[in-house]
């Protein structure tokens, strides 16, 4: 399986001289199975560059998995060129939205309206298919199995585990590890803690011994307290998870848009120093645009 990162930034694209090394595009990850199946996880602005790359191999058959509907994970979608060319097949997968009562097709319908984009969904030429996933639903195609699990974010967010030919990778989408909303002296504390411990152990089992773990690491441990409840994780939390579940490799992603390349390297080095791992633990790296990993 080959994984390539086309967008690694959180929240908003952040191009400029300070982000050239890691890149300013928002989340988009390309996964290729050994048999050549094309899986794309999230459609941040990184998907525009990816789709340029796909022109050479059209017609394509793409399976696009959306972790959640926040802009930075879908706003590249109208610029996904395969949509406009007959003969291509695109299947879009994502969660049901409890609040709007809509399936995954809303990510297209909302963006491709007269006021926001000149082309309507109905005018697209590719064969487009929507698959709204239930919690925990898996899908299989070719030599690939994709499993979903519910993460913790201000909107329904699915983490996806892609398995193929004995290898596996997992992407969290945006995720804040579950935390207790009560204070230790409150009556509801113990019961709540029990529930989140259970939830965490379910996630641990879901990602256990994965070859590649890609996790939202927006914040440092020092930054986190003022961002609690915003739906993002820390370097330290991701490192602890990777070590706990025996992942082979951890890629830290969803970089803060205001973080320069130098700053990013500095906070990453500091996090590694603060949580030294045992020998034989996972290799830990930062995601960057163009990073390719073969597992």
């Amino acid at each position: 399986m080959k994984i390539r990162f086309w967008g690694v930034r959180g929240s908003i694209p952040s191009p400029g001289p300070k982000t050239v090394r890691y890149g300013g595009n928002t989340t988009c990850i390309e996964v290729r199975s050994d048999a050549g199946e094309l899986i794309i996880i999230d459609a941040g602005t990184g998907i525009a560059a990816l789709s340029q790359n796909l022109l050479a191999e059209m017609p394509v058959n793409a399976h696009v998995f959306i972790t959640h509907t926040h802009w930075d994970h879908i706003h590249g979608l109208p610029f996904f060129l395969p949509f406009f060319v007959p003969g291509n097949k695109v299947k879009l997968y994502g969660a049901f939205d409890l609040i709007t009562g809509q399936g995954v097709q809303q990510v297209m319908e909302v963006q491709m309206q007269y006021s926001y984009f000149p082309i309507r969904e109905a005018e697209l030429r590719a064969a487009i298919d929507y698959h709204t996933l239930e919690i925990g639903e898996s899908v299989e195609f070719g030599d690939v199995l994709v499993k979903s699990t519910l993460m913790n974010h201000p909107v329904t967010d699915f983490g996806y585990r892609v398995e193929s030919n004995g290898k596996s990778m997992f992407f969290s989408g945006d995720h804040e590890p579950w935390y207790n909303i009560y204070d230790p002296e409150d009556e509801g504390y113990a019961e709540f803690q029990e529930m989140i411990d259970l939830k965490q152990s379910v996630l641990d089992d879901f990602v256990r011994e994965v070859d590649l773990l890609v996790i939202d690491c927006s914040y440092t441990t020092a930054e986190y307290p003022s961002k609690r409840g915003w739906g993002h994780g820390t370097f330290a939390g991701a490192m602890a998870l990777a070590r706990r579940v025996g992942a082979k490799k951890l890629v830290c992603t969803h970089h803060e848009p205001t973080r320069s390349d130098d700053e990013l390297e500095r906070v990453f080095a500091e996090a590694l120093e603060q949580q030294p791992g045992a020998d034989g633990g996972p290799e830990i790296v930062l995601s960057r645009e163009g990073l390719e990993i073969e597992i």
């Binding site: 049901f96 409890l98 609040i99 239930e134 919690i135 925990g136 519910l150 913790n152 974010h153 201000p154 909107v155 329904t156 579950w178 909303i181 509801g188 019961e191 709540f192 529930m195 989140i196 939830k199 379910v202 409840g229 739906g231």
Partner: peptide
């Protein structure tokens, strides 16, 4: 039914664990 969770949710705080406080706020 259209949003099958692995367990039946019988308390508000449990629903916060599964769906997050923002969704509960919206509801």
């Amino acid at each position: 039914a259209y949003y099958a969770l692995p367990t039946r949710i019988a308390s508000v705080s449990q629903s916060v664990v599964y769906l997050g406080i923002n969704t509960i706020k919206s509801l």
